[in-house]
Design a protein around this nucleic acid. Structure first.
Length: 606
RNA sequence: GGUCGGGUAGCUCAGCUGGAUAGAGCAACAGCCUUCUAAGCUGUGGGUCAAGGGUUCGAAUCCCUUCUCGAUCACCA
């Protein structure tokens, strides 16, 4: 029997079995096969067994039918101490692994405090992840929530895969849209502040952005009544002209405009900070477009000198992307002002100077696929080592039952309101169930916060990022079934059992007795548990938090079934009781780790 | 029109590096709390995996065609 737990894991087990299969085939048919031909996967739950070998690839070698071949290989494999028994269904050889192998595997997992994650070392590659990227003229909404949750979770998953991660944000703090809310506040605000109005700063500024739009539309309507065409009216409305002149003043560094800009941006930032904090996301480094766009212009001019870009007669600067099968792209307007692309080049320049980036990931919605395709080409041409392989982590829209969210039509779901609602509902649910009686108000509120946000986050993260998803405010707030609270509940229940065990004076050892006779349910749980590191690795490789979410859900479902059918504390066999406690404890730990990779907390009671 | 994504149960979603009878949750119906937290467990019903063709021992999965929904192709960001 093995003693060195730490060297034995699921991969080693599969490898060992693979080698045994190769040996068996060699013995039976005198041919050595490549390990790639040996397909071993977890047995489907409706069949008996733990691991299944697909024998179809070996039929040409055995020159026999699938069933006979499977039977022969199965019999040969029982020579190995690992294979306890087998059964054959069609061309599938189902193998039952000896229970002591599972226990040995479990003890290895138990001893690994950082199970499922790889350590970050000095030599780890550095990944920079940009996410959130808000405009400072309106509060965050449901679309931003998906972005923020995906971005943050992606960072956690990458860290768990042993990468150094720098979480970054680019704040869109300049431009005509910002001037619109500034202008509206100046004209209609009467000096209103977050303090005087009691509104969160980002909401206050957002209200003036809306106010601008209302007044602007009224002016356009008036002009059209005076006989102007719609196009003319839209261009000539006095408010728009004023906003444009304000932008010019801003660019010229006009003291008064800059002061107003600073003040209102600060309001927005403190509002955003509150929302970010509540969402549980954060950044290591924040960039502001107002400081990066100048670097962008400089970098574009540098490219112009090197001949990477070209200038048209009107003075505008362009990139010709014909060799990439794309069109031409504007980088600087004729008047020398920058566009979106220019700013991203500038931001990249600053980042490049400050960090030794191995991989740059942009978490931005899929409506910008083209933009990032172009950005990648341009950065590569400008000599950024990571430009060519930059990753656009592109995700789908969040749609409402009425269709897409549109800020102008007031159909956006506000981030703060949504969190309020989720937490409020969570509190009602727990009060109805009456499980938190005896806890302090602060503790109850904290649990409601954890569950409400858990429901929201899990709901969004369990979906494949690249797909559009539907959010129905009435139906999506659910706490039963495949939800965050379902998973959190299981964690809380395990904690409860462990508390009771501690109260009963049970001291848990570091390892389980490997001579135990386990049920298939228990060994299946170990098998599923053992798969966690593979899932984390896959989630990292595919940039998919959803894989973690779905894995944890499956694990929890399986555990709940076990919990229902087996008693833990009342088990009379002491060694078995200890094993079940250890198993529960480790599963709780994996739930906690998995959920933390999604940015979701788990409560110890609920 | 070009490019890129989607289309799986009434609804929301898994499964997609080809493997067994396509899975969950919600909703509906039927059971299970004097027993470790019922936010749980068990069961029933519900499918032409958009359609057609191809590759193969085997296709929801890979390839081709068609239909369909969305995004994008801006001197907006």
């Amino acid at each position: 029997m093995r003693n060195i737990f730490s060297e034995y894991n699921y991969c080693v087990m599969i490898n060992e079995l693979t080698q045994a299969v190769i040996a068996a085939i060699d013995k039976l048919y005198g041919q050595s096969v490549d390990s790639k031909m040996v397909q071993i996967s977890a047995t489907k739950k409706e069949f008996e067994g733990d691991l299944t070998l697909v024998v179809f690839p070996f039929l040409k070698i055995s020159k026999k039918g699938p069933e006979d071949t499977a039977k022969e290989i199965g019999e040969a494999l029982t020579d190995s101490p690992m294979v306890a028994k087998f059964n054959v269904i069609k061309g599938f050889l189902n193998l039952s692994i000896a229970k002591n192998y599972w226990l040995n595997l479990f003890n290895g997992i138990l001893a690994d405090d950082a199970f499922g994650t790889k350590p970050v070392t000095e030599n780890s590659p550095l990944y920079m992840v940009e996410y959130s990227s808000p405009n400072t003229n309106k509060p965050l909404h449901l679309g931003h929530i998906r972005n923020n949750l995906l971005g943050y979770s992606l960072c956690k998953v990458l860290e768990a895969n042993g990468y150094k991660v720098v979480k970054t944000n680019i704040v869109n703090d300049r431009g005509i849209h910002i001037c619109k809310s500034m202008l509206a506040w100046q004209k209609f605000g009467n000096g209103e502040t977050p303090e005087s109005s009691g509104k969160k700063g980002d909401h206050l500024v957002g209200d003036y952005y809306v106010k601008f739009d209302v007044e602007y539309k009224a002016q356009v309507k008036d002009l059209m009544a005076q006989g102007k065409s719609e196009e003319e009216a839209k261009k000539e409305a006095p408010l728009l002209l004023e906003a444009q002149s304000m932008l010019k003043k801003w660019e010229d560094g006009d003291k008064e405009v800059r002061e107003l800009w600073n003040m209102m941006n600060q309001w927005v930032y403190s509002g955003f900070d509150e929302t970010y904090k509540r969402l549980g996301v954060g950044f290591d480094k924040i960039y502001y477009e107002s400081t990066t766009y100048l670097d962008g212009k400089a970098k574009v001019n540098e490219g112009l000198e090197k001949g990477v870009f070209y200038k048209r007669e009107d003075g505008s600067v362009w990139a010709d992307l014909a060799e990439n099968g794309l069109d031409e792209k504007l980088l600087l307007r004729a008047d020398g002002t920058s566009v979106y692309m220019t700013q991203d080049i500038g931001t990249a320049t600053q980042r490049f100077n400050e960090y030794a980036i191995d991989k740059m990931i942009y978490v931005v919605g899929n409506e910008q696929n083209y933009h990032f395709q172009v950005l990648s080409i341009l950065l590569d041409r400008l000599g950024f080592s990571w430009g060519k392989d930059l990753v656009h982590f592109s995700y789908g829209m969040v749609e409402l039952p009425e269709g897409k969210m549109k800020s102008r039509e007031g159909t956006v779901v506000d981030a703060d309101d949504l969190m309020d609602e989720m937490v409020g509902t969570a509190k009602e649910v727990s009060q109805e169930l009456g499980k938190l009686d005896g806890l302090s108000e602060a503790e109850i509120d904290n649990i409601a916060r954890i569950c409400g946000l858990g429901a929201l986050k899990y709901f969004i993260l369990k979906v494949d990022p690249r797909k559009n998803m539907l959010f129905n405010p009435k139906e999506s707030i659910d706490f039963n079934g495949n939800t965050g609270p379902f998973i959190q509940y299981t964690h809380a229940r395990i904690c409860s059992v462990l508390r009771k065990a501690a109260e009963a004076g049970i001291n848990l050892p570091d390892a389980a007795d490997e001579g135990l006779t386990l049920s298939d349910v228990e060994s299946n749980l170990i098998q599923n548990l053992a798969n966690f590191p593979t899932v984390v690795a896959q989630a990292g490789a595919e940039y998919s938090p959803a894989l973690i979410a779905n894995y944890v859900y499956e694990l929890v479902k399986q555990y709940n079934s076990f919990y229902h059918d087996f008693s833990i504390l009342k088990e009379e066999n002491e060694a078995l009781k200890v094993f079940r406690l250890l198993l529960s404890k480790k599963i709780a730990a994996v739930i906690k780790t998995g959920m933390s990779l999604l940015g979701i907390e788990v409560p110890e009671r609920m």
